[in-house]
Structures are given as C-alpha cells and as structure tokens.
C-alpha cells in the first residue's frame, strides 16, 4: 500500500510541474543546446500585415531556424532592416490593367538591386526597380493573355505569352501567380527566345534555358543598379562591413593560365507542375 501511494505522490509531483499552464507560458528552455543558439532563430514576420516601414532584422550568421549553419562565410556587418518587397506583380485577367505610380526609388540593404515605392488605389508597396525607373512614372501590371503581342514598355508586367520574342525581362515567375523568382539581382535580365504551344522558353541570366508556362508573369526591362558588378570593395575590412567573412586560403581560383575546359550545354530546365506545399506539422523525435 505504501509503495503505491509513494508512486502516486511522485507522479502527482511530476504532473504539477508539467501541467501548470501559467508556468508553461513562460517558455522555459530545459535543453542546453538551445542556449546560445536561440538568438539565431528567425523572428516571425507577419507577411499578411503589409507595411512600408522597415522591420528590424537580426543577423542570422548564416544559421537556419534550427541554429545550424546553412551558408558559410556569413557573419557580422552593418545593421540592416528588412523591407517587404512584393514580387507578385499580378494584374487582373480581364479588363483594364492595374495602374500604379512610382513615388520614389530607394536603396535596399538586403539586396543588390534598388527598390521602388509604388502606389495605386488605396495600396502602396515596394517592388524591384527596373533600370530607368524614376519617380512620377506610371506602370501597368496586366494578367490578360493576348494573341497579338503587346508593346513592351519598361517597368510594365505582362504574361510571357503576350510579349514579343526577344524582349528582355526580369522578375520572372516559374509557376503562374506564385511571384517572381528568376532575374531579381542588380543588372540582370532574361530573354524570351521561343514560344512552343502554350510554353515559353527563356534564357536565364546564367545563359541556361528555362521552359515555363505562357501564363507566367514577367516585368519588361533590366533590373536597376547596373554597375553593381563593377563596384570595387577595396579592402578586406570593408568586405566585413557587408557581412562577408574571409575565405580560407587553401583553395585558390584558377586563372586563365590553367586553360579552359569546354563543357557540354546543360539541358533546358522544365517547370511543369508546382511542388506540393510542405506540411505544416513538424514532428520532432528524441
């Protein structure tokens, strides 16, 4: 009898410590592993509440959500703020296109390209600025697929199917209405080469070709800040201000003296069906 009551008492004590909701809300960390790495865990930014206000962004140090290194050679640097850049230039499928006015072209520390503040109706947002964008310009974004090609004006967004062949485009979608993914860095652009049925072939900034649906949107023109690749960092210490950590000196880049190996052309990347969304439930095991 005594043993049973003792076991119940021990159980009851254990339950007290676990089931007190008031205590569990304070989020005590029991594991020593989390300590020291918790600062790298990403802050949750609510994307549904859109703001033009720059948001505080803690330095990741190349670490992911689990505190492990994902990208090497990242650390330190000047403080940065995150601006909610909208890559979805989705216009109406029928009727007149969405017209917006460029209010300002600004610097963004989180990317190499400049960003533009645009507003139309009751909404204002940031987008990636194109090469010759300036305040006061009117830009259109349309979702209508046209048989006769439209006149491509820089800064406007159209489905790839309604653009003429040979146009330079940036902020290109790989699946329709999912937001631009390709050619967003400073000075880059893709080119529309072919149209086969309801598919379009685009040469990416890496010179590789890509096969996407004709409903994928893209913005006409080249991304702003075209002289970005000509900028000279100058010193190792200045590279640290940008958050770039020194590389080890073991492997050196080969010069032209080493000769060039002619490699076969890589095959076309085909984007047909979008990936299934990742499950929202993550199960951790001990």
């Amino acid at each position: 009898m005594a043993a049973a009551s003792l076991s119940q008492l021990v159980k009851g004590l254990a339950r007290l410590s676990i089931l007190n909701h008031a205590k569990s809300r304070q989020y005590f960390h029991t594991s020593g592993i989390v300590d020291g790495k918790a600062k790298f865990i990403k802050l949750a930014i609510n994307v549904d509440r859109y703001t033009l206000r720059p948001i505080h962004l803690p330095k990741s140090g190349g670490r992911g959500y689990d505190g492990r290194i994902q990208t090497h050679g990242v650390g330190g640097g000047h403080r940065q703020c995150y601006r909610m850049v909208d890559f979805k230039r989705i216009g109406p499928k029928t009727g007149e296109p969405l017209v917006e006015r460029v209010l300002d072209v600004r610097y963004d520390p989180c990317r190499s390209a400049d960003i533009a503040v645009v507003a139309g109706g009751e909404k204002a947002r940031y987008i990636v600025a194109s090469e010759n964008m300036k305040s006061g310009d009117l830009i259109k974004s349309s979702g209508e697929l046209k048989k006769i090609t439209v006149k491509a004006i820089e800064g406007d967004s159209y489905p790839l199917g309604s653009l003429p062949l040979g146009t330079l485009v940036h902020n290109i979608e790989i699946y329709p209405e999912t937001g631009g993914r390709v050619a967003r860095a400073a000075g880059t652009c893709g080119q529309l080469i072919k149209k086969i049925g309801d598919r379009c072939i685009i040469r990416m900034p890496s010179k590789r070709e890509m096969n996407v649906s004709e409903e994928c949107r893209a913005t006409v023109g080249r991304v702003s800040n075209i002289d970005h690749n000509k900028q000279h960092i100058g010193s190792a210490s200045r590279a640290r201000w940008f958050g770039i950590r020194p590389d080890r000196g073991w492997k050196q880049k080969k010069s032209g003296y080493n000769g060039r190996k002619i490699k076969p052309v890589k095959p076309v990347v085909i984007h047909r069906t979008p990936k299934a969304p990742a499950s929202a439930i993550y199960k951790d095991t001990v």
Binding site: V99, E100, R101, A119, G120, G121, E122, K123, A124, L138
Partner: peptide, 9 residues
C-alpha cells in the same frame, strides 16, 4: 492624383 485614391494612408 490619379491613379492614387484620395483615401490612401
């Protein structure tokens, strides 16, 4: 102030 709505902000 086209295309902005006067009720913006």
């Amino acid at each position: 102030m086209y295309p902005l709505s006067p009720l913006i902000n």
